[in-house]
Amino acid sequence: MLNLIINAIINGILLGGVYALLAIGLNLLFGVLKLIHLAYGQFVMIGLYILYVLVVNAGLPFWAAAIITIIVTGILGIIVHILIVQPLLDAPRLNQLLALAGLIIVFENLSMVIWGADYRNIQMSLPVVAVGGFYIRMSYLIAFIGGLITLGLLYLFLYKTYLGLSIRAISQDLEGVELMGVNPKVNFYVTMAAGGILTGIVAVFFAPIYAVHPHFGSSFTILAFIIVVLGGMGNLLGGFISAFIMGVVTSVAAFLTTSEIADIIAMLIFIGVMLVRPQGIMGIREAR
């Protein structure tokens, strides 16, 4: 019994790496741009479908398909920005949220029309390695490492480049940034493109783990929101730590009870954090 629980915890930690990867893009959009991207999970889903078409239908090698997928999702991010986010930048933030929620309907049904309701995965099974009586899935481990690297790159981008600096400045004071001679329009484009690219990266690492279907996205969107809020919006390190917390909590709860109860616990943590500590476990309370 204890052995199984320890195994559930190890699984949870690895799952946490996968979740961390998932949440990074949303952390950028929600935390930095304050954009409530409700269709985030659907972006990942589209990425997975593109990858599936390229690998299974077009017969490309995985690495080539992965690069194309990441580029396409980046472009998709820009398109969504031009068509939906840009016209609503001055509108109440609730309208942005609702328009992106409308996008959920579009994406889910579009993939239903094109690919049908079947579960599809690229036939790529990675081994499960046994270490000292505990089982570790290689696909999770790879996603875990991928998450670390992506986080590092994003950190370098946001904190070591001029563009990253101006993106962070926009989230603090839009008018002030404009007075300093930065064109926020360009930054919005870059951020949405980066958000799209990150969903593409998530899709690439998710491909060996999950089979994709039209209703794939919504649960991951909510999960990503939980992680970002728990870690503190825009706080990359906080998001990373909270991903591990959520990974372990859901993994152990799912082992002890059922997966629905585990999800309910995750939601209740989310509601609780939103109420009591909206700045997250690592965040600093700022005046709104």
């Binding site: 939906i84 016209p87 328009a99 409308g102 309907i105 239903m112």
Partner: peptide
């Protein structure tokens, strides 16, 4: 699904 796609697009247009 096509109907739902059009419905979603119409929704987004109305909101904008």
């Amino acid at each position: 699904g096509v109907s739902e796609v059009l419905y979603g697009i119409a929704l987004i247009c109305f909101i904008i």
